[in-house]
Protein backbone atom coordinates (compact mmCIF):
# COMPACT_ATOMS: atom_id res chain seq x y z
CA UNK A 1 0.00 0.00 0.00
CA UNK A 2 1.38 3.38 -0.90
CA UNK A 3 0.36 6.80 0.30
CA UNK A 4 1.97 10.15 -0.36
CA UNK A 5 3.29 12.87 1.87
CA UNK A 6 5.23 15.91 0.70
CA UNK A 7 5.22 14.28 -2.73
CA UNK A 8 7.04 11.29 -1.32
CA UNK A 9 5.42 7.94 -1.83
CA UNK A 10 5.19 6.24 1.56
CA UNK A 11 6.19 2.61 1.55
CA UNK A 12 5.12 -0.16 3.85
CA UNK A 13 6.80 -3.49 4.13
CA UNK A 14 4.54 -6.53 4.37
CA UNK A 15 6.17 -9.18 6.48
CA UNK A 16 5.47 -11.69 9.19
CA UNK A 17 7.10 -13.37 12.12
CA UNK A 18 7.12 -17.09 11.66
CA UNK A 19 9.32 -18.40 14.42
CA UNK A 20 8.34 -21.99 15.19
CA UNK A 21 7.64 -22.79 18.84
CA UNK A 22 7.67 -26.06 20.75
CA UNK A 23 6.33 -25.38 24.21
CA UNK A 24 7.16 -27.69 27.12
CA UNK A 25 4.04 -28.87 28.91
CA UNK A 26 6.03 -30.08 31.93
CA UNK A 27 5.47 -33.14 34.12
CA UNK A 28 2.33 -31.90 35.82
CA UNK A 29 0.62 -30.76 32.65
CA UNK A 30 1.70 -33.87 30.78
CA UNK A 31 0.08 -36.08 33.42
CA UNK A 32 -3.16 -34.11 33.04
CA UNK A 33 -3.16 -34.27 29.24
CA UNK A 34 -2.20 -37.96 29.19
CA UNK A 35 -5.17 -38.73 31.44
CA UNK A 36 -7.43 -36.98 28.95
CA UNK A 37 -5.87 -39.02 26.20
CA UNK A 38 -5.67 -42.43 27.77
CA UNK A 39 -8.55 -42.54 30.23
CA UNK A 40 -10.89 -39.70 29.29
CA UNK A 41 -10.54 -38.47 32.84
CA UNK A 42 -10.00 -34.98 34.18
CA UNK A 43 -7.53 -34.79 37.02
CA UNK A 44 -6.72 -31.79 39.17
CA UNK A 45 -4.14 -30.91 41.81
CA UNK A 46 -5.01 -29.88 45.36
CA UNK A 47 -3.04 -27.38 47.43
CA UNK A 48 -1.95 -28.88 50.78
CA UNK A 49 -2.26 -25.50 52.55
CA UNK A 50 -5.41 -23.86 51.25
CA UNK A 51 -7.17 -26.93 49.76
CA UNK A 52 -7.85 -25.21 46.44
CA UNK A 53 -8.37 -27.70 43.62
CA UNK A 54 -6.89 -26.49 40.32
CA UNK A 55 -8.01 -27.42 36.79
CA UNK A 56 -5.84 -27.28 34.75
CA UNK A 57 -3.46 -28.56 37.41
CA UNK A 58 -0.75 -26.45 39.02
CA UNK A 59 2.61 -27.45 40.42
CA UNK A 60 2.42 -24.46 42.75
CA UNK A 61 -0.59 -22.84 44.38
CA UNK A 62 -1.52 -19.52 42.79
CA UNK A 63 -2.91 -18.20 46.04
CA UNK A 64 -0.45 -19.36 48.72
CA UNK A 65 2.61 -20.38 46.63
CA UNK A 66 2.82 -23.84 48.27
CA UNK A 67 4.23 -26.77 46.32
CA UNK A 68 1.46 -29.15 45.26
CA UNK A 69 1.87 -32.93 45.00
CA UNK A 70 -1.64 -34.30 45.50
CA UNK A 71 -3.78 -35.30 42.52
CA UNK A 72 -7.58 -35.56 42.72
CA UNK A 73 -10.01 -36.60 40.02
CA UNK A 74 -12.78 -34.12 39.22
CA UNK A 75 -15.96 -34.82 37.27
CA UNK A 76 -16.15 -34.25 33.54
CA UNK A 77 -19.25 -32.12 34.10
CA UNK A 78 -19.91 -28.86 35.81
CA UNK A 79 -21.56 -25.45 35.74
CA UNK A 80 -21.13 -22.80 33.03
CA UNK A 81 -19.94 -19.62 34.74
CA UNK A 82 -19.86 -17.38 31.70
CA UNK A 83 -19.79 -17.70 27.92
CA UNK A 84 -19.65 -15.73 24.72
CA UNK A 85 -20.79 -16.38 21.18
CA UNK A 86 -17.90 -15.33 18.98
CA UNK A 87 -19.12 -13.77 15.71
CA UNK A 88 -15.87 -12.94 13.91
CA UNK A 89 -13.63 -15.17 11.88
CA UNK A 90 -10.11 -15.95 13.02
CA UNK A 91 -7.57 -18.49 11.80
CA UNK A 92 -6.77 -19.29 15.40
CA UNK A 93 -9.99 -21.18 16.13
CA UNK A 94 -10.77 -24.77 15.21
CA UNK A 95 -14.06 -24.13 13.35
CA UNK A 96 -16.19 -21.37 11.85
CA UNK A 97 -18.06 -18.58 13.58
CA UNK A 98 -20.39 -18.31 15.30
CA UNK A 99 -19.02 -20.54 18.05
CA UNK A 100 -19.17 -20.46 21.82
CA UNK A 101 -16.38 -20.15 24.38
CA UNK A 102 -17.17 -20.64 28.06
CA UNK A 103 -15.66 -20.98 31.50
CA UNK A 104 -16.78 -24.14 33.29
CA UNK A 105 -16.52 -24.90 37.01
CA UNK A 106 -16.19 -28.68 37.04
CA UNK A 107 -17.71 -30.57 39.98
CA UNK A 108 -14.94 -30.97 42.54
CA UNK A 109 -12.78 -28.13 41.18
CA UNK A 110 -12.28 -24.65 42.63
CA UNK A 111 -11.07 -22.95 39.45
CA UNK A 112 -12.77 -22.58 36.10
CA UNK A 113 -11.71 -24.26 32.88
CA UNK A 114 -11.87 -22.25 29.66
CA UNK A 115 -13.20 -24.34 26.79
CA UNK A 116 -15.51 -24.51 23.78
CA UNK A 117 -19.26 -25.05 24.19
CA UNK A 118 -21.32 -26.74 21.48
CA UNK A 119 -24.36 -28.92 20.88
CA UNK A 120 -26.79 -26.18 21.84
CA UNK A 121 -28.49 -23.35 19.90
CA UNK A 122 -26.73 -20.04 20.56
CA UNK A 123 -29.82 -18.45 22.09
CA UNK A 124 -30.33 -21.34 24.51
CA UNK A 125 -26.97 -21.06 26.31
CA UNK A 126 -27.35 -19.75 29.84
CA UNK A 127 -24.99 -18.90 32.66
CA UNK A 128 -25.49 -21.56 35.34
CA UNK A 129 -26.41 -24.38 32.94
CA UNK A 130 -24.78 -27.78 33.48
CA UNK A 131 -22.40 -29.01 30.80
CA UNK A 132 -20.40 -32.20 30.19
CA UNK A 133 -17.18 -32.91 28.35
CA UNK A 134 -17.36 -34.52 24.90
CA UNK A 135 -14.10 -36.30 24.17
CA UNK A 136 -12.50 -36.74 20.76
CA UNK A 137 -12.37 -40.26 19.44
CA UNK A 138 -8.73 -39.83 18.42
CA UNK A 139 -6.82 -38.20 21.23
CA UNK A 140 -3.22 -37.02 21.30
CA UNK A 141 -2.54 -35.54 24.72
CA UNK A 142 -3.89 -32.03 24.09
CA UNK A 143 -6.49 -29.75 25.67
CA UNK A 144 -8.61 -30.26 22.53
CA UNK A 145 -8.79 -33.99 23.31
CA UNK A 146 -11.96 -32.61 24.86
CA UNK A 147 -13.70 -31.47 21.66
CA UNK A 148 -16.15 -29.29 23.56
CA UNK A 149 -18.58 -29.24 26.48
CA UNK A 150 -22.27 -29.84 25.78
CA UNK A 151 -25.33 -29.09 27.90
CA UNK A 152 -26.67 -32.03 29.91
Amino acid sequence: MAQKQQDQELLQYESRIKVPYTWSVGEVGSRFLMELKENRKIWATRCPSCDMVFVPPKKTCTYCFSDIHEWVEVKDEGVLQTFTVVRYETPLIPGKPPYIIGIIMLDGADTGLVHLIAGVPHDKVKVGMRVKAVFEEKRKGHILDINHFKPI
Binding site: M1, Q12, Y13, E14, S15, R16, I17, K18, P20, Y21, T22, W23, S24, V25, G26, E27, G29, S30, R31, L33, M34, L92, G141, H142
Partner: peptide, 16 residues
Amino acid sequence: VDLLTINSGEAEQPFC
Protein backbone atom coordinates in the same frame (compact mmCIF):
# COMPACT_ATOMS: atom_id res chain seq x y z
CA VAL B 1 4.77 -39.73 32.49
CA ASP B 2 5.48 -38.95 28.81
CA LEU B 3 6.76 -35.38 28.66
CA LEU B 4 4.57 -33.62 26.10
CA THR B 5 5.17 -30.55 24.00
CA ILE B 6 2.78 -28.29 22.09
CA ASN B 7 3.81 -27.08 18.64
CA SER B 8 2.90 -23.79 17.02
CA GLY B 9 2.84 -25.51 13.63
CA GLU B 10 2.32 -23.11 10.77
CA ALA B 11 1.27 -20.23 13.03
CA GLU B 12 2.65 -16.83 12.14
CA GLN B 13 2.02 -13.20 12.97
CA PRO B 14 1.46 -10.85 10.05
CA PHE B 15 2.98 -7.35 10.13
CA CYS B 16 2.94 -4.45 7.74
